[in-house]
């Protein structure tokens, strides 16, 4: 579904990612893990069209898409849940969800998807008229994911959905992600929460200082000594 090859992106002179290659097969969950500043967000933003790559190619559903504007990518079926959730704080939950379907014209389909979000995220149903900005962090994350789904994406890009959330909320979020995937949406997820991200992943990549250094199935990476050493830190996360 998504194939990234030798992707490099810079901020001025600073090379943030170099020759990143990864593959997200249809129907799977793929995780990209890495420490602070590894270039995870940069990779996501480049794929989603928020940044323009210096070199490399991105192929989505058989089309070369690098350099496309974000709105075209949303139309093509890609949706990004940005780092830090990016909720529209002065709009209500309902309005946030409606904004997610901004490009769609199929009123009936939007209504159906709205119903679907209400069953997937019961918390949102209770709070449709609450201002986005007054929701808790976990609720905002749910809203941000639901809003992205309102564009009915084939591929959902999640940038650190666990950021700043309590462990119990994090496991809720990951449950939801797994459910979304089971309902047919392909998922690429970027995380620092290595354990959770690899547990649900079919395949994973490890990013260090802008480059992919390891890859393998989620399980293989979880048991990889180097990954354990660097990211799971023995007892600390056990």
């Amino acid at each position: 579904m998504l194939r990234v090859e030798n992707l490099s992106t810079s901020y001025g002179q600073i090379k943030a990612i170099r020759d990143v290659s990864l593959h997200v097969p249809e129907g799977k969950i793929v995780s990209l893990i890495g420490a602070n500043g590894a270039g995870k967000t940069t990779t996501m933003k480049t794929i989603a069209g928020l940044l323009t790559p210096k070199s490399g190619t991105v192929t989505f559903c058989g089309q070369r898409i690098e350099g496309w504007k974000p709105h075209r990518l949303v139309e093509a079926g890609m949706a990004l849940v940005p780092e830090g959730r990016a909720i529209l704080g002065k709009m209500t939950v309902l309005e946030n969800l409606e904004m997610g379907a901004f490009q769609r014209k199929d009123a009936q389909g939007i209504k159906d998807d709205m119903e679907k979000m209400m069953t997937w995220f019961p918390i949102l149903k209770e709070r449709l008229n609450q201002l986005g900005g007054t929701m808790s962090g976990g609720q905002q994350q749910m809203l941000s994911i639901a809003r992205a789904l309102m564009s009915r994406p084939k591929l959902l890009l999640l940038d650190e959905p666990s950021m700043g959330l309590a462990p119990i909320v994090v496991s809720d979020i990951f449950k939801v992600i797994r459910q979304i995937n089971q309902e047919g949406t392909t998922v690429l997820i970027v995380e620092q929460n290595v354990k959770q991200a690899l547990k649900i992943a079919d395949y994973g990549y490890v990013l260090e200082v802008g480059q992919i250094v390891h890859e393998g199935t989620g399980e293989a990476l979880l048991n990889d000594e180097r990954v354990k050493e660097a990211y799971l830190g023995g007892r600390k996360h056990a």
Partner: peptide, 20 residues
């Protein structure tokens, strides 16, 4: 008007939602 408001509030979010 909604699009204007979203862009003013958070340009990245607006882009991610597919606004031109």
């Amino acid at each position: 008007g909604r699009a204007f408001e979203a862009i003013k509030a958070d340009e990245t979010a607006a882009k991610a939602m597919g606004l031109q």
